[in-house]
């Protein structure tokens, strides 16, 4: 289980692996998850394999679509990480074929182009999630884990990290009983970060899930909104919960 080291200075944390994670929320079933990684670029495939193995997943790697098709037919995987551009059968055709054969294994698509058409095509073809390249490895791992959990547990209505509470039904946020006023955008941002508490959220992922932008606007929209949100939830309280992971993104987490 990945864990983040405690913050060293305001808002910015350094990020490293920590093997003895007492907060690990993952159950035993996740640890035994079997994942198929389909990626023709050998180095990328190796990185993804290593990162997933570090999470305790069993990982199989295929470098082309035909091999992957044969593998997916014979082995019941818990999740598939699928690159779109592949030699032989491309990712989208493979995905369509899987769905036609009623193989409902959750699929995370990887694509070199962060194109909206490709995302829509992928989701239409039956993908469960989509990640444009270059992706944050930690985020890929988090999304694969979420795919494995899919359907297993229902979304809680009240989210809580330390003494920060967010009621998703009344859309009320409070910390230590003090009501925090949020704009619509800040609320969605906080909900997204709290639903993935403890996991790094990359800027692209935040733009996609909170703003529904699948393009990079080339602006610091995410950063300024995170800063405003931090003002509201962290400025008057201790400990700080919303952290910047330099070069990668943001995370909400309870200090360990």
């Amino acid at each position: 289980m990945t864990k983040l080291s405690p913050p060293r200075h305001s808002g910015v944390i350094r990020f490293r692996y920590d093997s003895d994670d007492s907060q690990a929320s993952s159950g035993g079933s996740e640890r035994n998850m079997r994942v198929l990684v389909v990626e023709d670029e050998k180095k990328t495939a190796a990185f993804v394999r290593k990162a997933l193995q570090a999470e305790g997943f069993a990982v199989d790697v295929c470098h082309n679509g035909d091999e992957a098709w044969a593998g997916a037919l014979t082995t019941p995987f818990d999740a598939i990480v699928l690159d779109i551009m592949l030699p032989g059968r491309d990712g989208l055709s493979l995905l369509r074929q899987l769905r036609q054969h009623s193989i409902a294994t959750p699929v995370l698509l990887l694509s070199a182009r962060g194109e909206v058409n490709e995302r829509v095509d992928g989701l239409n073809a039956g993908a469960d999630d989509y990640l444009p390249k270059p992706f944050v490895l930690a985020e890929l791992v988090a999304r694969v884990r979420a795919l494995g959990r899919r359907g297993g547990e229902s979304k809680p209505a009240v989210l809580q990290v330390a003494d920060l509470r967010l009621d998703t039904l009344t859309r009320r946020a409070e910390r230590r009983g003090v009501l925090i006023e949020l704009t619509a955008r800040e609320y969605r941002l906080l909900e997204f970060l709290m639903r993935s508490a403890g996991q790094i959220c990359g800027r692209m992922a935040i733009l996609e899930k909170v703003w529904d932008y699948s393009f990079d606007p080339g602006s610091n929209l995410v950063d300024v909104n995170v800063m405003r949100l931090r003002e509201k939830i962290d400025a008057d309280f201790e400990p700080k919960l919303l952290h910047t992971v330099r070069g990668l993104g943001y995370v909400i987490k309870e200090p360990s």
């Binding site: 990020f15 490293r16 990185f47 270059p134 992706f135 944050v136 490895l137 070069g247």
Partner: peptide, 16 residues
């Protein structure tokens, strides 16, 4: 995009 992805992953691992 491919080398960028590899570089990104490599640096990310380095940060760990």
């Amino acid at each position: 995009k491919t080398p960028l992805t590899v570089m990104h992953a490599e640096l990310e691992n380095w940060l760990r």
